[in-house]
Amino acid sequence: MKHSVFREGDLRFEFATESEKFDVRSSSPHGMKFVDFVISGDKENYLLEVKNPSDSQIPSEYQHSTREEFAKKMLDGELINHELVPKARDSYCFLHLMKRDDKPFVFVVLLGLSEFTNEEALLMGFKDGLNSRLNNECDTPWKRKYVKDCIVVTEAKWKNVFPEHKLHRINDETTSTD
């Protein structure tokens, strides 16, 4: 099967199944935010959002401030509450209205921060916070669960979780391999 190849900053994905760059559209409903990719799977479809503050394509004079800003968003809840969850929710809404919700969705967040911990306990803590917000964004939890589950992966973990979908970090000199 032909792989679909996409770039997200300095990350290159080769998806082995049908996939789509979801946040770049010729037209989008006003106010809706979308995840980066939708990838089809056997039993479920994946809504993939990539957060890549270690992107080497960011000009060097902005790299420090980009990472600082990312850290701040993680710490004050903005990353989950104002970015990740709204994108998951709106993406689901769009796909549901387009009758493309034949399979359950799993929300996948790829954290491309090179120094970010690979300590599973902390990744799980972040995942639990994300999952909680996916289920409840106001004073009452959603009556309908619109994503089956969510997972948080780092670059190092990607190949174990999605061995069929290749991920490379590209810099100016070389192409890295996994």
């Binding site: 056997d42 039993k43 589950d149 969510c150 997972i151 992966v153 979780v161």
Partner: peptide
Amino acid sequence: RDVERAIG
């Protein structure tokens, strides 16, 4: 185990 459960 959590990932396995999430992605079936």
